[in-house]
Simulated scan of single mutants.
Amino acid sequence: MPRAQLRYILAALVALGAPSFAAAQVIEGPAEVIDGDSLRVAGIEVRLFGVDAPEFSQSCYSKGSEVACGAMAKDVLAGLIENSVLSCQPRDTDTFGRIVATCKKSGVDIGEALVEAGWATAFRRYGNDYVSAEMRARAPRAGIWQWDFQMPEDYRAAQQAELQPRTGRSSPRPAARARRYEGNGQCLIKGTHSRRGDWIYHLPGMPYYDATRAEAYFCTEAEAQAAGYRRAIVR
C-alpha cells in the first residue's frame, strides 16, 4: 500500500474518533534500520512503539570515556531484524508524521527484545508496556545500562535547545537539560564532606571517585549545587 494511502486511512480513523489504531492495516515487508528505534518497513518509515533508544549521534560514558552507544543500538536492532520480513501494527503517528507501531518478527516483539537486551529504554511517556523488560535489563546492567548515559529524551531536548537561534539579549537561548548521571536506577554523583568542612561532589570518572565515601547522591550537578556542594577540583 502506498504511504500516502496508508496515512489517509490513519487520518480517517482519527477523524472518525476511533479509540485506537487496531483497525489500521498491518504493514508487512522487509525492513531497513534507520537508528536504534526506527526503520523503514515496505518503504514506510516506522517508529517502534513504547521504546526509546539512544540517538545515533549520542554517546554513553564509561569512567569518563565516550562510548558510541547510539551507533551500537542501531547495530543491535539491525542484528535483531537481519533480513527478515516484519509485521507492524500501527498504534499512532508521531510529531514527524511517522507511523508508530508494534513490530514483530516471527511473532517476536522487536521492541520488547530491544529493551530486554538493554539497548533501549521503556518510553514511559507513551505507556508501560516494556517497563518489566527494562527492569530485566537493568538488573544485570545489560547493554547501555553498563554505562552512564543521558536519557534519550533528555539528549534530544538538549540538542534542540542548542539549535534554537538567539533572538537578542532579552531572549536568551533556552538552557539545555542538565546531563543526568544514573546507573541501574541509582544517582551516581557523590557528595561528601572534606576534613576541612568543604562540601564537594565527584562525578563518575573523576580521580578518587571510586575511593570516595558518599554522604549523599545526586543525579545532576544542579541538584548537588543546590544542596550546597561544589565540584571537586581535578588537578
Rank of each mutant, 00 (worst) to 15 (best):
V67H: 01
C69F: 02
C69G: 04
G70A: 04
M72Y: 02
K74Y: 03
K74Q: 02
V76F: 03
L77Y: 01
L77W: 02
A78C: 10
G79H: 01
L80D: 02
L80G: 04
L80W: 06
I81W: 03
I81C: 03
N83M: 06
S84M: 06
L86F: 07
L86K: 03
S87W: 04
S87E: 08
Q89R: 11
Q89M: 12
P90L: 08
P90Y: 07
P90V: 10
R91W: 03
T93D: 10
D94A: 11
T95E: 15
T95A: 13
F96Q: 12
G97N: 11
G97W: 11
G97P: 13
R98S: 08
I99V: 15
V100Y: 07
A101D: 10
K105P: 09
G107A: 13
D109Y: 04
I110E: 03
G111E: 07
L114F: 02
L114V: 01
L114C: 00
V115H: 02
V115G: 02
E116T: 04
A120E: 01
T121I: 07
A122L: 07
A122T: 03
A122M: 05
F123T: 04
F123E: 05
F123Q: 06
F123K: 08
R124C: 08
R125I: 07
R125N: 08
Y126S: 08
G127A: 10
D129M: 12
Y130H: 08
V131C: 06
V131Q: 06
V131F: 06
S132P: 13
R136V: 05
A137C: 07
A137L: 05
A142C: 11
G143F: 00
I144M: 05
I144H: 01
D148H: 05
F149V: 00
Q150R: 10
M151T: 07
M151D: 08
M151Q: 09
P152L: 05
E153W: 11
D154W: 08
Y155C: 01
A157Y: 09
A157M: 10
Q159P: 05
Q159H: 10
Q159W: 10
Q159E: 12
Q160V: 14
A161R: 11
A161S: 15
A161P: 12
E162P: 06
E162W: 13
E162G: 15
L163G: 06
L163M: 13
Q164P: 15
Q164K: 12
T167P: 13
G168E: 11
G168V: 13
R169T: 12
S170K: 14
S171Q: 15
P172W: 10
P174H: 10
A175Q: 15
A175W: 11
A176E: 14
R177Y: 10
A178F: 07
A178H: 08
R179L: 08
R179E: 09
R180C: 06
